[in-house]
């Protein structure tokens, strides 16, 4: 049985006097790919930020890779994970500098950075953009750069916060397929926030549905697809 990479127990997150999250138990297993779905304000992105060790819960425990957060360096912990935000925030420098930034933070030499970055730039079809200023990119290009920025770090877990929301339909479909095969090829544990059931079923194995800061249902994607197929035939 796969071990839990992140386990949440009796966790609450209160911000400005409002309970944003109330999660009695949740476990993300190694190799799993899950979707968090639910209406706006359900707490999906907040839960993801807690899992990425970017937001400290108000109470409860979060166990990362078998150890509680306070038992390990938060920096080292964050360096085992990567996140792609809904609207990629590019620094005011070239695409190359943006993509290799995380590797630079980890102290990799210029040569090592180049060695690690180049295959991803080619794989994501953005190697022609490397000298361009990152802030001049189109939505689709910026999203690819953001994905490259995360994947070059070879993370054990990747968090995707509505990664396709800013893309037009054509770009979204193409990009979704690309990301899907990338995640499968590299067997990266994945957590994705999405509003689209099709994205969730295409890219992940389990769908968690959230409302008012709580997880209210868990459904295996294959079961969902079977029911969907059955109801369409009926």
């Amino acid at each position: 049985m796969s071990k839990a990479i992140i386990e949440i127990k009796d966790m609450t997150l209160v911000l400005g006097g409002r309970t944003i999250l109330n999660i009695p138990h949740f476990a993300l297993l190694e190799g799993q790919s899950i979707s968090l779905m639910g209406p706006n304000g359900a707490g999906k992105s907040s839960l993801m930020l807690v899992m990425a060790a970017l937001l400290e819960p108000t109470s409860g425990t979060v166990v990362y890779f078998g150890k509680q957060a306070h038992e390990q360096s938060l920096l080292n912990l964050r360096r085992r994970m990567a996140m792609v935000f809904q609207k990629p925030m590019m620094l005011d420098s070239s695409v190359m500098e943006n993509v290799e930034m995380g590797l630079k933070f980890r102290g990799l030499s210029r040569r090592a950075r180049e060695r690690q970055v180049t295959p991803w730039l080619e794989r994501l079809g953005i190697n022609h953009l490397v000298r361009q200023r990152a802030r001049s990119l189109s939505g689709g290009e910026a999203q690819r750069v953001a994905i490259a920025q995360a994947l070059v770090l070879q993370p054990e877990v990747i968090f995707l916060d509505e990664p396709f929301s800013n893309l037009d339909k054509g770009t979204r479909d193409e990009f979704k397929q690309d990301i899907g095969s990338l995640l499968r090829e590299n067997s990266i544990t994945t957590v994705m926030v999405t509003h689209h059931i099709r994205e969730a079923t295409d890219l992940t194995d389990i769908i968690y549905y959230m409302e008012d800061g709580e997880i209210i249902s868990r459904q295996v994607t294959s079961d969902y697809l079977a029911v969907d197929e059955f109801s369409r035939q009926g």
Partner: peptide
């Protein structure tokens, strides 16, 4: 402010974030 979050997510330590 989201740039700070992005830098943290990329694994920046305090000094690296400040410099960035």
């Amino acid at each position: 402010p989201r740039i700070r979050l992005q830098l943290l997510a990329l694994g920046a330590n305090r000094m690296q974030m400040l410099w960035s």
